[in-house]
């Protein structure tokens, strides 16, 4: 019995370790390439760690390329998108969770539909709609598009967070003298903060990694985002792996940091009946 349990425990830890290694190895490789000097790149291609490490690639990317600008643009776009989407999807998710109304079926249907087609299909029409408004080649246009793309899923997410909060609470608040909106703001929202954090992080990473529309709606360097900049390393004749991966490491930092802290709220928030008592 005890031996069996020991074996099971060891197997469990080994399996976890295997998953962690599998998850981290590719990221480790990005880091490794980014600190490998160019002359060792090919000769030590398979070694786990180069015999000599340098920070030349980072130096180049930070001081001699447009990446700081791209980084700033991406930050602005992703943060604004995440904040706006979180606000809109909180409102929408609340309506979906707390009211039963005639249009609900159609709204849910519409939101599901938006998840079903290749977004590539929308590029030309969106370009046609945005360009007379002066919203192409601008960060605001990109934010607008990203917000729309991310709102449906975020609304479903927020709805499931709200579903986890007992209805009694806002009824009690309404009897205590609050309007429905006050009850929403003072009672329900504070309890959904973890859920909102999760949505914020989720949308941030999604916006941070979007490539297609960033590529198509924006043509100048001024409003380019990180992914587009990163791709410019590939489109040259020879790929500069070291610089590309140094830029990649920089791109990873905010997204990973964000996600690292919010992922547990994502699990918590999606757990049914988590917010009680």
């Amino acid at each position: 019995m005890t031996r069996k349990r020991i074996v099971a425990t060891v197997a469990h830890r080994v399996a976890i370790l295997a998953y962690v290694l599998f998850a981290l190895f590719p990221l480790f490789w990005v880091l490794k390439i980014s600190v490998t000097p160019n002359d060792l790149l090919y000769s030590e291609g398979v070694r786990l760690w180069p015999s000599r490490t340098v920070f030349d690639h980072f130096d180049f990317v930070i001081r001699h390329s447009d990446f700081p600008l791209f980084f700033r643009n991406s930050m602005i776009v992703s943060l604004s998108t995440a904040v706006i989407v979180t606000i809109l999807s909180s409102l929408g998710g609340y309506a979906m969770s707390r009211f039963s109304f005639r249009g609900k079926f159609w709204i849910v249907g519409l939101m599901l539909l938006t998840q079903m087609f290749p977004l590539v299909m929308l590029i030309a029409p969106i370009f046609k709609i945005l360009s007379p408004l002066g919203l192409t080649n601008s960060l605001s246009g990109l934010i607008l598009v990203y917000v729309a793309f991310n709102v449906p899923f975020a609304t479903f997410l927020m709805q499931s967070f709200f579903d986890g909060i007992p209805k009694d609470l806002e009824e009690a608040a309404m009897i205590d003298g609050a309007t429905r909106f006050t009850a929403f703001r003072q009672i329900i929202l504070p309890l959904t903060l973890p859920g909102m954090a999760a949505t914020l992080g989720f949308v941030f990473t999604a916006a941070w990694s979007e490539l297609l529309f960033a590529l198509m709606l924006i043509s100048g360097v001024d409003a380019s985002t990180f992914p587009v900049g990163l791709l410019s390393f590939v489109s040259k004749f020879s790929v500069d792996f070291g610089q590309m991966m140094a830029a990649g490491v920089l791109a990873l930092i905010p997204a990973c940091l964000f996600f690292f802290f919010i992922q547990r709220y994502l699990v918590q928030g999606l757990t049914a009946g988590a917010v009680k008592g």
């Binding site: 976890i16 590719p26 490789w29 990694s209 490539l211 791109a251």
Partner: peptide, 28 residues
């Protein structure tokens, strides 16, 4: 947190990342 980290990696970057890993010159 570590196991969930890949989800945060921009998708095109994971593409580049794995293309590199499959490349016999720079990947293992």
């Amino acid at each position: 947190a570590l196991c969930f980290l890949p989800w945060a990696v921009p998708s095109f970057l994971s593409g580049l990342n794995w293309a590199m890993l499959f490349n016999p010159i720079v990947g293992p």
